[in-house]
Simulated assay, not measured.
Amino acid sequence: MSVSGKLVVLAGATSASGLAAARVLSGDGARVVAVGRHRSKLAALAEEVPDARLEVCDLTDEAEVGALAERIHATDGRVDGVLHLVGGWRGGGGLGGQTDADYRELEGSFTALRHVSRAFDEDLRASDAGRLAVVSSTAVTRPLAGGANYAAVKAATEAWARAVAQGFAKAARDAEQPLRAASVIFRVKSLSGLEDALAQRFADLFVSQADEINDTVVELTDPSL
């Protein structure tokens, strides 16, 4: 198995991590659909990765995500992989500085995950190597008062990814079929400098057996440290 020929959706592709993922996955032979909210930022990605197909979508809007899934199915077929890169940081100021506005902004990444994972759940379960991966933070294991909003959202993200993993396993058991889909959590302190490593580790998930990686946490650290 490999990622070559697989259809992969990059959810939140306009970041440095999205660009790296598009470049690495496309170079490995994957069919990449790069999804972002801003067409201008997606255009910049297309200049470097011309093979990637671009989709503009507000992933926090359930109806828009449903329409996105329909377009992808009509144009590209069934999705084999989803790398969820919607994120962001707001924090500081101790517990008193954890404003509701900051929380709602951060919560958008979790809302997007809920919408995207549900929209493509059936695809991933039907694929011969369905893969969902989310990016979490070491803040989950050691939350600080000044990052309580952020840690809470990342903890919810991990819980959702693990629930997806359980759903994959249950569907396989109920169908009396081997497990072919896997949900994986990538946990980082900071993605800065790890963009290519994240992309390659995601591509490597397609080489691994689903029952070996489903419901696992992969710690990504800076190799230079």
Results as ranks from 00 to 15, higher is better:
S2M: 06
L7W: 00
V9R: 04
A13Y: 00
A13I: 04
A16K: 12
A16C: 08
A20K: 03
R23F: 09
L25W: 00
L25S: 03
R31V: 12
V35T: 04
V35P: 02
G36Y: 00
R37A: 03
L42D: 08
A43I: 09
A44E: 12
E47R: 15
E48D: 15
V49R: 01
D51G: 15
C57R: 05
T60D: 09
G66C: 00
L68Q: 00
H73Y: 11
A74T: 03
T75A: 14
G77E: 12
L83Y: 09
G92N: 07
G93V: 04
G97K: 00
Q98D: 01
A101V: 13
T111V: 10
T111F: 06
A112L: 09
L113M: 13
V116K: 06
R118M: 12
E122A: 14
L124C: 06
S127I: 05
S127W: 01
R131G: 00
A133C: 06
V140I: 07
L144G: 11
A148G: 07
N149V: 00
T157V: 12
A159D: 14
A159F: 03
A163S: 15
G167V: 08
A172D: 02
A172T: 10
A175S: 10
A182G: 02
S183R: 03
R187S: 09
G193S: 07
G193A: 04
L194E: 04
D196E: 15
Q200I: 07
F202G: 05
D204M: 02
L205K: 01
F206C: 04
V207D: 15
S208G: 12
S208P: 11
A210T: 03
D211Y: 13
I213N: 01
I213F: 00
N214W: 04
D215A: 12
V218H: 04
E219P: 11
L220D: 02
T221M: 13
D222I: 11
